Amino acid sequence: MPPPNNVAPKVRVRGMILTIGIAAITIVGTMVGAGLKTDIETKEKQKIVSEPAGEDDLIAALEARRLGLVQARATWEKKAENLRERIESNAKRNIGGESGSGSITSGK
């Protein structure tokens, strides 16, 4: 008994879908692997470049890092002071606005 006529196109479509899926997985895997390798190589190069050669270079690098940290600390302290000032001004504004309203509580 011969197979029905509609079986061959289904098998052909299924084969094409599987082939396309495998090709897509292979391409994506290759791209991700290449990206990871590039990232690792970049990090290694940065590590080699950032390592100081001698004591003088180490001291200079540490002083530069300290300067950057001091500047960052000053920025954060300024932001904290501005926040404190805003909180105080909001508190003063709220205290002045609530003086006439008061809270009403029942004795029950």
Rank of each mutant, 00 (worst) to 15 (best):
L58M: 02
T26A: 00
E88A: 12
A60V: 04
T105L: 12
T75W: 00
A34Q: 04
G102Q: 05
K47L: 13
K43D: 11
K92W: 00
T75A: 14
D39F: 13
N82Y: 05
V7E: 01
S106M: 06
A53H: 10
V13H: 10
N6F: 09
A64M: 01
W76S: 15
R86Q: 12
G100R: 09
G102F: 10
L18W: 09
R86G: 15
A23G: 07
R66W: 15
K79A: 02
A24G: 00
A72K: 12
A64W: 00
S106W: 01
P2T: 02
M31W: 14
D39L: 03
R65P: 06
I17N: 01
G96D: 01
V49W: 15
S103F: 06
A23E: 08
R14L: 01
T105M: 07
K43W: 03
D39V: 02
V32F: 09
T30M: 11
T19V: 00
E85L: 11
E77L: 12
T26K: 13
N90P: 04
E44D: 08
L69V: 11
R66T: 12
L69K: 03
K10T: 06
V70S: 11
E88G: 05
G29T: 06
E85K: 14
L83D: 10
P9I: 08
L36G: 09
D56N: 11
E81T: 04
V7S: 05
A23D: 02
E77N: 12
E55R: 13
E51F: 06
T19G: 05
M31P: 04
V11A: 01
R73Y: 09
R12Y: 14
I59A: 02
K45N: 10
R84T: 02
E85H: 02
S101M: 04
D39Y: 08
K78T: 12
A8E: 07
A80P: 06
K45V: 10
V49D: 15
V13N: 06
G96W: 03
K78N: 14
G97Y: 10
I17C: 01
G102H: 07
P52V: 09
I48Y: 10
V7A: 00
A72R: 03
V49I: 14
V49M: 11
I27F: 11
A24K: 06
M1G: 10
L58H: 11
E85W: 13
I59G: 00
I17E: 00
S101A: 07
G68A: 04
G21V: 05
K10Y: 05
D57T: 08
R73Q: 04
N82G: 06
M1D: 13
E63V: 11
N6E: 04
E98P: 00
R93E: 07
P4Y: 07
L18G: 03
I40V: 13
M1K: 01
S103Q: 10
A64T: 08
Q71R: 14
E81F: 02
G107K: 08
E55G: 08
D39R: 11
V70K: 03
T19D: 03
A72Q: 08
L67G: 05
E81V: 08
A61H: 08
N82L: 13
